[in-house]
Design a protein around this nucleic acid. Sequence first.
DNA 1: CGCGACTGTGAATGCGCATTCAATGATTGC
DNA 2: GCAATCATTGAATGCGCATTCACAGTCGCG
Lengths: 357, 357
Amino acid sequence: MKRISSRATSFDVAALAGVSQSAVSRAFTPGSSIAEEKRAKVLEAARKLNYVPNSIASSLTTKRTNIIALILGNMGNPFYVHVLHEFSRRLQALGRQVLIFTVDPGSESDEAILRALQYQIDGVILTAAQLSTRMTSLCHDRGIPIVLFNRYIPGSDASGVRCDNVGGGRLIAEAFLAAGAKSFAMITGDPKGTTSQDRVRGFVERLMEEGIRRSEIEEVGGQSSYDGAAQAALTLFGDRARPRPDALFGINDIMAMGAVDALRYRLGLKIPDDLMVAGFDDIPEARRSPYKLTTVRQPINQMVEQTLALMHLDEPDRPIERGIDMPLASRLIWRSTIPVPPAYRSDIADDAGMDEG
Amino acid sequence: MKRISSRATSFDVAALAGVSQSAVSRAFTPGSSIAEEKRAKVLEAARKLNYVPNSIASSLTTKRTNIIALILGNMGNPFYVHVLHEFSRRLQALGRQVLIFTVDPGSESDEAILRALQYQIDGVILTAAQLSTRMTSLCHDRGIPIVLFNRYIPGSDASGVRCDNVGGGRLIAEAFLAAGAKSFAMITGDPKGTTSQDRVRGFVERLMEEGIRRSEIEEVGGQSSYDGAAQAALTLFGDRARPRPDALFGINDIMAMGAVDALRYRLGLKIPDDLMVAGFDDIPEARRSPYKLTTVRQPINQMVEQTLALMHLDEPDRPIERGIDMPLASRLIWRSTIPVPPAYRSDIADDAGMDEG
DNA sequence: CGCGACTGTGAATGCGCATTCAATGATTGC
DNA sequence: GCAATCATTGAATGCGCATTCACAGTCGCG
């Protein structure tokens, strides 16, 4: 059998149903003017022919493909996997589909956007990747909304959705201080990403308010992955000669998890007895028994919701909002990697009943 | 600014370059007959106009969209996330993109395939979901290859790619037996999936060869997730009155991990001292220190490779191979959740240097 | 020097559908 | 009962591009 075989077209259906091609098109277009009886006849004929409307052809006239490009920079971080899942679910419910573009973490996404543009996508969601202003205007000039997820780009026209990373960093510092920590370390991620930068900034800012000098806060950058963080933890804490910081901030949960495992299993440290640790994101994995990570929760659902709102897919003619950046509130989740000070006892996370889904 | 704004077309470019629209088309089609000098002129004009070829329009004539549908049934299992990542990378390298369809685990994927068909995708990869034969022929009739990944459907025309799950189940049983286990339990997943069924079958088969009766092998089904398995582990082992099996087979790694954590942290059991555990898949997470799961490795790269080969995207006119099902060999990875018998000492996994990527 | 074999080119066509337009019959309001 | 509205309908058109076709130069080889 030939690969390009007989796919019935709307004309074929029209012929079988004894109506015009217009009628077939109307039968499949909700809200268009067609007699119920005729529509039934058309659908019946379509069924007989195994007719499936060609949405590629239709988007040629409608200018809408119902495809959203999702540019993913770091699938190794479960946070983005959950984001992907959530977008896929929500967009499918809205009659849209997600077209995936993966790029190397931290690298330019220009090439991916160019490819996306060829598919005439209705919108772009960008996670974990850089973006040139040229690409932003390329999209905007065509009326295609582009939303930066979990990041922003200073001076960029593109709108972004994120949580208050600076505030979250402060919350972590606050928690460490409340638990009595005196010396601090950080494992940071992509130095070009505003997300990592902001978390560091809030964290450091708060510590400096307590008279701690920036130079006293040890920092090691790693690849934004479990293994990268494990490596970084070893370089930070592996040297027995140096005094050991008693609080470690992992810039995101997956890195904090890598650090925790390295500290425990490679260096034999007890957490939080020898050393307290915090993460950021509150990915489902952070709740699991081996970790019980104290962390800052990102409001993923709200963030997804706001992203969809910014794209206003149902009102394609509305002008695109430029440069919007309203950080959502983040919240500290107390678990077991920081000793809980009495004042916070009532805040301890009750993870029972929370399903990973 | 209007949402539908000026996207330059090949005619605009042609006008600016002083050539025909055909020439523009040729300039962007590798291997077509056009003078190098003219091509340069066209590209220059295209650059000036920010022209991006409309691949939607072109696929109307070429009948190829370069889009592959990936139907995902269980994003909660990291195994499928790695699969997604791998397909995305490989397909992008081949100039294709992945369109995501998520369905509820274990549910029918017919509706998703119908939606995929509307996008005139060039191929379908199906993971973790059921499939009716009607959909298979719908795809095949249109010359669209459909490959079942990590499963097969008995009597179906669709080809599949998977590893030898029966053999893998046997390997697990073998390992338990070699380590001296006498009583056995299983936590199984989707009862409709051949993957779970086959692993169980191989496992049970091997045990029965040793004179163990099927009825002696305890079994609890759970949702195919970390939490589902944790729950199942509690119902299996939570009852102190009953004698405790000394070997537990988690039908995949994520479930084995859920079980391990529940056993350790909820029931205070030591692994492998009180109880040995094995998983299946060898996801990167299984290597991590808290788990060090003894498991069966699925050859993901080979499986992806074979899937692409079955779709032979570059030879669209070649007839589609029907009902192919050649299980790939799987391999036992010894880690720490089963005591390693002397005979297997040399097989212990050396995970150093293996990066999660 | 001459004729077939090529290469490069533009005009024209069609891919499958949504939409516009004008026409039809049906229904309503007064 | 008559004009005015309304709901349906099909023919025709165009979306942006690849491809076919016919034609004009070019080249090679005898």
